[in-house]
Design a protein around this nucleic acid. Structure first.
Length: 372
DNA sequence: GAGCCGTGGTA
DNA sequence: TTACCAAGGCT
């Protein structure tokens, strides 16, 4: 028991044992998790943790199974062409993760003989692995006494300890609080238990406090401020930017696909030719950005896509029966090849828009991803 | 440290 | 519809 100076309440500390007991009864079964009491393969832990960065469990599950089936080991993944990895990742978002994933696989396969480092510090040095992911892999795959502080843990800890300092200023305190709680025994289960608690009980809205193993010691609940935590500064509003997308079809029905530069927005992905997506392009002056001269027709309507920091409004220009060389960095591809290439959602939208306009809605539907 | 970097689900 | 947000990392 300690005294909370802010309100004079006596509070008991949350215990790892209580959380682990709850976890033993309520742990989620997930594709990357080993059965209770077993340690999952580091490759699977790493792959899942990268995919789960800022991405929901539901979105990741299918991709994880696909990747494991296609590349069962880190050596297999390292040996794959980068283009294939990018295609397999298409639709998951944050494409720098896919580039770093492949780079990391190569380092592990070629320099570490296929074995992941088993310490936070060693893991932290690999591409795509930051403080959170290093802690998660060290704890889950190697049972190291490491804290894995993600958005879930931030929420749980800010509530249990009533940390009212706004993020990100409050992060250091939350990390310290978490590290102090990690048990010597079962640190990997502790990390996963904390995430399960955040995902299923201590949710952003309407947390199920009555079911929480830490209801008793929760200071946020005692103060009646649970749902207001963690505190965050208001986000800046998203500007709208305009771009032109050029859908070109050759006489044989193949379409023009361009590979985007490796860094920046949608870096390394393929899609229809377009003006620079991050600059604001007036559709009335868009034709200067076309891949080649042609009889470009502006299609009716626009296509919108929301990114984290801006909304993109795309005007689609189409040309059919085009007999032209593909510009450098681009190629003519059949629609089957386009599906194989995998387009980011932002560019799948204008592609579907063009197909629907030129060939009817049925043609656009064929673009949709099918379960393998 | 703050901006950049996707996507789909939810209320 | 808008707004928030989900197992963050890089620059």
């Amino acid at each position: 028991m300690t005294l909370d100076q802010r309100n004079g309440n006596f509070v008991t500390a949350p215990s790892a044992a209580d959380l682990l007991a709850w976890y033993d009864r309520h742990r989620r079964s997930l594709p990357w998790r080993a059965p209770a009491g077993e340690r999952p393969a580091p490759y699977r832990v790493w792959l899942s943790e990268i995919m789960l960065q800022q991405t929901t469990v539901a979105a990741v599950a299918g991709y994880f199974v696909d990747f494991i089936r296609r590349w069962p080991s880190v050596e297999d993944l390292a040996a794959a062409p980068t283009e294939e990895v990018m295609s397999a990742w298409a639709g998951l978002g944050y494409y720098a993760r896919a580039r770093n994933l492949h780079a990391c696989a190569k380092v592990v396969a070629e320099e570490f003989d296929g074995r992941f480092p088993d310490t936070e510090q060693g893991l932290r040095a690999l591409p795509g692995i930051g403080p959170y992911t290093a802690g998660a892999i060290a704890a889950i795959a190697f049972d190291r006494r490491a804290a894995a502080v993600d958005g879930n843990v931030e929420r749980v800890m800010s509530r249990v300890f009533r940390v009212e300092t706004p993020m990100p200023q409050g992060k250091p305190e939350i990390r310290a609080r978490t590290e102090a709680l990690v048990p010597e025994d079962r640190p990997g289960d502790f990390a996963q238990a904390l995430m399960d608690l955040g995902a299923t009980i201590c949710t952003p809205r309407k947390p199920a406090c009555a079911l929480c193993p830490w209801m008793e010691p929760c200071q946020g609940r005692a103060a009646g401020v649970v749902e207001t935590l963690p505190r965050k500064a208001p986000k800046a509003e998203r500007p709208v930017k305009r771009a032109a997308v050029f859908w070109a079809e050759a006489p044989d029905g193949s379409v023009l696909l361009a590979r985007r530069p490796p860094k920046g927005l949608l870096g390394g992905t393929e899609g229809p030719w377009s003006s620079e997506l991050t600059s604001d392009t007036d559709p009335a002056e868009a034709l200067v950005h076309a891949p080649f001269p042609a009889d470009w027709a502006r299609l009716a309507g626009t296509v919108e896509h929301g990114f984290t920091h801006f909304t993109l409004q795309m005007t689609v220009f189409a040309a059919t029966g085009v007999a032209a060389e593909a510009p450098a960095g681009a190629r003519w591809a059949t629609l089957d090849e386009l599906k194989e290439a995998g387009l980011p959602t932002a560019l799948m939208k204008p592609a579907a828009h063009a197909l629907a306009a030129l060939h009817g809605p049925a043609a656009a539907k064929r673009l949709r991803k099918r379960p393998k």
